[in-house]
Simulated scan of single mutants.
Amino acid sequence: MLLRRGRVGEETTDQRLLDTTGPTDWLHTDPWRVLRITSEFVEGFGGLAELPPAVSVFGSARTARDSAEYQAGMEIGRTLAEAGYAVITGGGPGAMEAANRGASEAGGVSVGLGIELPFEQGLNQYVDLGLNFRYFFVRKTMFVKYAEGFVVLPGGFGTLDELFEALTLVQTRKVTRFPVVLFGTRYWGGLVDWLRDTLIAQGKASPADLELFHVTDDVDEVMKILADARRRNGSSDQVAAERAAYAAFEEDVTEL
Rank of each mutant, 00 (worst) to 15 (best):
A72D: 09
Y126Q: 04
V253M: 12
A241Q: 13
V175L: 11
D19R: 15
E251G: 07
R7C: 08
Y70P: 04
R16H: 12
P93A: 10
A208V: 08
E69H: 05
L35S: 09
R36N: 11
R139V: 03
Y70M: 00
M1L: 11
G108H: 04
I88L: 05
T216K: 03
V151Q: 03
M96C: 08
L48C: 04
L182A: 08
T172Q: 10
R65T: 07
V138A: 12
G114A: 09
E250A: 15
G149D: 07
G107P: 02
R65N: 08
I88A: 10
I88W: 00
R5K: 13
W32Q: 10
S236K: 12
R78E: 12
T254M: 11
I200E: 09
A245P: 07
E105M: 09
R139F: 01
E250K: 14
F119W: 13
R62Q: 02
D161M: 05
I37Q: 04
I225R: 03
G84S: 06
P207W: 11
G46D: 12
Q121V: 08
S110Y: 06
R139T: 02
P52Q: 03
F136P: 04
E242F: 12
D218W: 06
R36I: 09
D14M: 14
S104L: 01
E165N: 13
E251W: 06
T168M: 07
L131Q: 09
V151N: 06
Y135E: 01
F178I: 06
E162K: 04
L169H: 05
A245M: 11
G156I: 07
A147Y: 00
V222Q: 05
K224H: 14
R231Y: 04
L27P: 09
T185L: 10
E40N: 05
E97H: 04
F137Y: 15
I225W: 06
G77D: 00
Y135W: 12
A240P: 02
A247Q: 14
G46E: 10
W188L: 04
L131T: 00
L117N: 06
E116G: 07
V239H: 09
T141M: 14
I88S: 03
D19W: 13
N132S: 10
M223R: 12
V222R: 02
L51G: 02
G155C: 10
F137A: 10
L80E: 05
A201R: 13
H214G: 05
A68H: 08
E97M: 10
L182G: 00
R196F: 02
Y146P: 06
G91Q: 02
G155Q: 02
V222C: 11
S206L: 11
E11W: 14
A247H: 10
D220N: 12
D19A: 15
V175M: 08
A103L: 06
S39Q: 13
V138W: 05
G47R: 07
R230E: 15
A147T: 15
D217R: 08
V57I: 08
G94V: 06
N124F: 01
T176K: 14
V239D: 14
A68P: 00
R33G: 07
G9T: 14
P154V: 03
A240G: 10
G102T: 07
L18V: 13
T21C: 03
A86L: 02
F213Y: 14
Q202Y: 08
D237T: 11
A201H: 08
L212W: 01
T176G: 04
A95D: 04
V57P: 02
G114C: 04
